[in-house]
């Protein structure tokens, strides 16, 4: 603790007061309320085929979106760090669009694009591919909102990678793709996974960009946050809370597992890389 600097009591006090008011008390209320529902009420809300189907959709679509973002996030980060080209700053700025654009705006824009009569939807329709109002559409919306995470996680790590490590591999006879596969990819993997985890977590809870393109057909394109919304519209607070609890628990377990995986990987790869990620 710094001995000379002033202001600790006030700043600490204000911070704790503010966070209590906005975050802590509401969260405690949620836990309190959940415990008050009782097993039976909880169980009745959970045993619902619509919820199972929504959970399956939320998790698979979020997972696929995270995979797509992992691959393309790596590609974009690579291009931004390693190459100079016309439009680089534009590309760099665009990456942040999903962070800055309201989710509802993204939702209606994507829906218009991928609807049967939209720019892309009308191209896909003759091929028999439907995007809007199908799980594919949900996945596309979730890919959109998760896009910046992998790019922004991988960029600094890629930039900090030692060029000499690549040169060493080349001098030992490795071809560019082999160098990438054996040396660079393993070093970038923790950052890629960290970015994918964040994208996945964000996708699980996402609402605004998905509701428009999903079409919200029961048992087919309903996501979990939408079910919570439905319960609330019927003033079934207990049901909504039960579903929210299940979702929070499941995503917590998943994030925990992802963190363990990352920890294990970065321990393998050594401190140097772990620090930069």
């Amino acid at each position: 603790m710094s001995r000379t600097l002033p202001g600790f009591p006030f700043t600490f006090g204000f911070m704790m007061f503010y966070m209590s008011f906005i975050v802590f008390i509401p969260l405690i209320a949620l836990v309190w309320y959940t415990m008050g529902i009782g097993w039976e009420g909880f169980w009745n809300a959970i045993i619902d085929p619509r919820l199972f189907s929504a959970l399956r959709l939320s998790f698979t679509a979020s997972f696929i979106a995270a995979i797509v973002n992992g691959a393309f996030g790596l590609l974009i980060a690579w291009v931004l760090v390693r190459y100079d080209f016309f439009g680089k700053r534009l590309m760099d700025g665009l990456i942040d669009l999903p962070f800055a654009l309201p989710t509802a705006v993204a939702g209606i824009a994507l829906t218009s694009l991928y609807a049967e009569n939209g720019w892309i939807g009308s191209l896909l329709a003759p091929l028999g591919i439907e995007v809007a109002f199908t799980p594919v559409g949900v996945t596309i919306a979730l890919t959109f909102i998760g896009l910046p995470f992998v790019v922004r996680m991988v960029e600094p790590v890629l930039r900090s990678l030692d060029r000499e490590t690549e040169e060493a591999a080349g001098l030992l006879g490795a071809r560019p793709f082999t160098i990438f596969r054996t040396v660079m990819f393993p070093l970038l993997l923790p950052a890629i996974l960290a970015g994918m985890t964040l994208a996945f977590a964000r996708a699980l809870g996402e609402y605004g960009s998905v509701v428009f393109i999903a079409g919200n057909i029961p048992m087919q394109t309903e996501i979990v946050p939408l079910l919570i919304m439905n319960k609330l519209e019927q003033f079934d607070y207990a049901g909504a809370t039960a579903i929210a609890t299940v979702m929070l628990l499941l995503s917590f377990i998943l994030l925990f597992a992802a963190n363990i995986l990352q920890w294990w990987l970065s321990r393998k790869i050594g401190q140097k890389v772990a620090h930069s990620s």
Binding site: E164, T165, E167, A168, L171, P186, K272
Partner: peptide
Amino acid sequence: EGAQDRSVGFVFQHYALFPH
């Protein structure tokens, strides 16, 4: 000829070992 084909042993100042 590229570095890959010269069969040269090179030791970098900061070693450039593969950390993983």
